[in-house]
Write a protein that binds this DNA or RNA. Sequence first.
DNA 1: GTTCCGCATGAATCGATAG
DNA 2: ACTATCGATTCATGCGGAA
Lengths: 285, 285
Amino acid sequence: MHNITTKILLGDSREILKEIDNNSIDLIVTSPPYADRRKNTYGGISTKEYVEWFLPVSEQLLRVLKPTGTFILNIKEKAENGERNTYVLELILALRKQGWLWTEEFIWHKKNSYPGKWPNRFRDSWERVLQFNKTRNFNMYQEAVMVPVGDWANNRLKNLSKTDKIRDNSKSGSGFGKNISNWLKRSMVYPSNVLQFATVCNNQNHSAAFPKELPEWFIKLFTKVNDFVLDPFLGSGTTSEVAQRMGRNSIGIDIIPEYVEMAKKKIAQKSYPYLTITESLYEKI
Amino acid sequence: MHNITTKILLGDSREILKEIDNNSIDLIVTSPPYADRRKNTYGGISTKEYVEWFLPVSEQLLRVLKPTGTFILNIKEKAENGERNTYVLELILALRKQGWLWTEEFIWHKKNSYPGKWPNRFRDSWERVLQFNKTRNFNMYQEAVMVPVGDWANNRLKNLSKTDKIRDNSKSGSGFGKNISNWLKRSMVYPSNVLQFATVCNNQNHSAAFPKELPEWFIKLFTKVNDFVLDPFLGSGTTSEVAQRMGRNSIGIDIIPEYVEMAKKKIAQKSYPYLTITESLYEKI
DNA sequence: GTTCCGCATGAATCGATAG
DNA sequence: ACTATCGATTCATGCGGAA
């Protein structure tokens, strides 16, 4: 039986984060209000002031994160007057200057994204999921997110050519050799950096920034049971709910009282801890 | 019978491009040598000097492109010493400063990339396909890349409810509404900005940058028959080959004699022009 | 119980028109 | 000329009630 805590705090992250100890968090996973979005609730930070607004928060995040920890940031720029805004690019550059390592950019491909087509553009059906780290020696539990081998194996591995069966160093000089036949015996393979989750379509509940699968995937990948997860822009509480269910300690912060109430209700309902099907599957491996 | 030309030129794009007329190209689609890649062939431009190296080329591209034309740039930063390099982000900002509009970022999802991983990252299975324009009034032939509607339509549209027949505004106050009955006769719908093309097999002795489907898709979307396509980093000649097959005039430039020879052979083999199945379908619309 | 089917909903953007 | 408001456009998903 795990003994975890799930804290939900009301207030401005720039202040509340100061109460958290140095080097105490294993994973930060969050989706802050995007520039000029969520005007009704968060007031809508303009693209011009966005980086300036975000840096004091990320400064605290850098302090509270363990050297082995990871910061996952889900964000997207908007298109306006025919152009994509560059504030997210500028944010990445500013975060590096602040001391973060920009380790990876995952793509969240939203299969059921908002409809809409315009004379000069199609639907924007993806978002950036940026990974930042404090050091190069961060914890990563890759086995935890392995996926069943799919069509790739069925089609590709049926007929292995001679060159496929020996170690086949690519001629193009990538230096990455593959030994295809090793994959034959496996039923699970590692995923790539393109993630396909559906967006949340809440008919009754309040809308959430990201689907449960998103924090779940990163919590699996970057933490173990009893680790500490932080979401400084909790919203309706998805991260806290998932962390609790997965037996991780967590702290969630939001500035909107209604959201904090909603999040508290969510975590109170659950008889923690129990693990998801995929999680328990992993534990058996 | 179309009467198109397909030019393959040997030399440095920074020089050769000067021979092309102002405002004469409808589409530039290219995959330049990535920083520190293809060292054996292109000499490997370092990440530090990449932007500086690229800007004289893009200055010429800006000159030769028609005001209604589009510049498609397939590029991806590499991971270096555990970090993603920021030179592509800096290039986007520099191109805007040069006068380009950053219109869109498509994601090329390489679904069939080999499984593989490193201790601290997974397989990188996507690339950026950046769209730049000279003006906001560029040509876009969206019907040319429509895709079949999803299965849901069969069930969904069988019986229309009362709200389906009228405009139904979203409750969230976003102003977003829908009128389902508009979709009744729809068999084809518009795609999103996430593209899924297979990767090319590198079993030839050159580093093929992108599969035929990539230039084909953008040539369909941004040009008509008899328009002018340009690839200033032609490589093995994929863009020229596809443009010729689709009845577009084209100019391809590369600095490597072997590549130019290879490209010339490719375009000589073809009895031009003939159109792809999808292309001829579009022409009937 | 299990499958089927109706239905509500969502981090949107552009062009035209009005102030 | 510049800003504000309004109308048009569009798909996939999960829930819950019906069959």
